[in-house]
Design a binder for these strands. Sequence first.
DNA 1: GATGTAGTCTTTAGCTTCGAACTTTATCTT
DNA 2: AAGATAAAGTTCGAAGCTAAAGACTACATC
Lengths: 182, 182
Amino acid sequence: MADTTGAGEPTLDEQIAAYQREFQDLDPQVEKIVSALSRLNRRMNVAYGRQTGALGISNAEWEVLKALVLSGVPYRMGPSELAKRLGLTPAAMTHRIDRMVAGGLVTRARDESNRVRVIVELTPEGREKWLEAMRLASVFEEDLLQDLSLAERSVLGEVLTRLLRRVEHAQPDAGGRLTDLD
Amino acid sequence: MADTTGAGEPTLDEQIAAYQREFQDLDPQVEKIVSALSRLNRRMNVAYGRQTGALGISNAEWEVLKALVLSGVPYRMGPSELAKRLGLTPAAMTHRIDRMVAGGLVTRARDESNRVRVIVELTPEGREKWLEAMRLASVFEEDLLQDLSLAERSVLGEVLTRLLRRVEHAQPDAGGRLTDLD
DNA sequence: GATGTAGTCTTTAGCTTCGAACTTTATCTT
DNA sequence: AAGATAAAGTTCGAAGCTAAAGACTACATC
């Protein structure tokens, strides 16, 4: 379970109509964008989960592999750095690393120059898993976007990064309004 | 914690560059769109979480309220219907309803015409909570999209629903490819 | 060099979820 | 009717998460 496939969910247009019925002062166009974004993301995560599952790892483990690989050679990071990157508590990171060490995806060693620190390092097996997952993911992503023209891709990318900048550089105040930080 | 704010995360462009370095056959434009989508969604969920938290409910409870309100008067649904809608197991639904009954957001009653069934019904307090949350959310969403022109909003909505249709009407096969169902 | 303080993990307790087994009620078959 | 089958929720045990407390190391200050 925990499919989040959205089976039995109303169509997007039905949902917008219901919103309009229950909450009048709502811009349907805004709501459509927001709802589509959220749904699209959930469906994509389900797809990623199926792919990583087929490789015998979880999405959670895939994220750790991703952080390590993207950090570049020699593929090492400390647990707290990883935790911050993934938005986890240090406690959760400890346990996740435990599982991944047991699965042979990473190794854990004490930093000899500073014995408080721990070094998590990607194993060759872990790197290979990530590559396999990436191969599947990139095929899926290409297929997903295949109907979009080059112009549409360009606009979509630009608009999304603009929105991203807005949430990142602004924080909602108590009333929920976004106020610029800089 | 569990902020998922992405503190200490590389910028989007740095991340794309790292992908290129570690995995050559990747279309940077595709990856930019996908990464932006995912990040944007995480940041938005954090914002929603702050807002619902300020109202004394969790995002999880907010989702149940949403499903009930959108179902329309008389705001009633069965646990399994709710579970399917939210992508939860029946077990998780049972517990979530327990908590919401305790919090006065919904009531639980046996259906007298079919005593296997249970009816979860929104309380006036629950409906009011949802309205408050919606007021905050709609302000946030308007602010988020404020820099987009009408034309851009229209294109964005159209493109996103097209992508959504593609994931919904197609399922990735074992190799990860999306194959049309109809 | 003893003591305090800060930083980095790990441990513990409690919560939410999933998967699977179980209970209760309705329905179908004969 | 009687018994099998199906459907709807709940209960149970394990996994993974958070928050808070604890343990250990490094470093500053006296």
